[in-house]
Computed example of a mutant assay.
Amino acid sequence: MSQTNISVIIPTLNAGTMINDLLTCLEHQSRVPDEIIVVDSSSDDHTRDFVREHPQVRLLVIDRKDFNHGGTRDMALRQSTGEFVLFLTQDALPKDFGYIASILEPFADEHVGLVYGRQIPKADAHAAESLVRSYTYGPQSFTVTLQDIEWMGIRAFRASDVCAAYRRSAYLQVGGFEDPVLTNEDMFIAARLLHAGWHVVYEAKAEVIHSHNFTWKQQFKRNYIQGVEIERHRDILGDAPLTGEGLSMVGYTVRHLFRQGRILEIVRFIIDCGFRYVGNRKGKNDAKRKS
């Protein structure tokens, strides 16, 4: 693995407050990447200026209207050289200098096509957000194969390009990310990889600091888009319902908030979940009507 080319790709938009720390962290990893590519969607802050302070980083600039979660990442990957290609979002900071080495470790198994890492909440994360992250990204690593889809359902396809790594040959074999796709490009390619016989690994040792304190309006919009795309991709996701996994997450979060005595946070979280649910259902129904 040490002799293998490693590429890191980071899409950015107005990342001036965080991109320098992220690039510096990557440049000091125990396994330094062979190339780092930043794809900037015509930021109107100082993002590109900060990137240019790192001369080894390759900067690609696209028009903001041309950004696409699948197409933009696919374009950058096809311009990269690494046998293994790592994606990070601009607001995901590796927790330590061993992040790259950790996320590459599972690729020692030649059947592994995709590895994604653990997301640790930021210090300012709401209590509920911290619990949701701990539920979704636990401390135990695991491997998912085609045979696991039957019992895991939709959870088998969980993956996140917040911090993920792909084996180039596997990625290209299944056709890469779709273009266009509004969101969840990582989930859909995970499904295609599994159906093609590749393994997907959650590597808990590969940790990044990442979380969001979304408003209710943002949650509605985010889950509406997810509902649209998930409904459009029922052919590869199957009929596994999302509600079962969602209810399990809600129960976990509410129980822990109750033990912490955070009653007002429970109320806020339940309302938040309502916006998620309504947004997802509306997106799903709108996609059905248009199909």
Rank of each mutant, 00 (worst) to 15 (best):
N20P: 01
N20C: 02
D21K: 12
D21S: 14
T24S: 13
T24E: 12
T24R: 07
T24C: 04
L26W: 15
L26A: 03
H28P: 02
Q29T: 03
V32T: 10
D34K: 03
E35Y: 11
I37S: 06
V38P: 13
V39I: 14
D40S: 05
S41R: 10
S41I: 00
S41Q: 12
S41Y: 04
S42C: 03
S42Q: 07
S42R: 02
H46T: 12
T47M: 09
V51F: 15
V51S: 10
R52G: 01
E53Y: 05
E53H: 10
E53A: 11
P55G: 02
V57A: 07
L59I: 04
L60W: 13
V61C: 07
V61R: 06
V61W: 07
V61E: 14
I62M: 06
D63E: 14
D63P: 04
D63N: 09
D63M: 03
K65H: 12
K65Q: 12
D66M: 06
F67G: 02
F67P: 02
N68Q: 13
H69Q: 15
H69P: 08
H69Y: 15
T72D: 09
T72P: 11
T72S: 15
R73L: 12
M75P: 01
L77S: 06
L77R: 01
R78H: 11
R78I: 00
Q79T: 02
S80K: 00
S80C: 01
T81S: 11
T81L: 11
G82H: 07
E83I: 01
F84E: 04
L86Q: 09
L86H: 13
F87S: 03
L88S: 07
T89L: 07
Q90I: 01
Q90M: 12
A92D: 02
L93W: 12
K95D: 12
Y99V: 01
Y99W: 15
Y99F: 15
Y99S: 00
I100W: 11
I100Y: 13
I100K: 01
I100E: 09
S102V: 00
S102I: 01
I103F: 13
I103V: 13
I103S: 04
I103H: 10
L104F: 11
L104P: 08
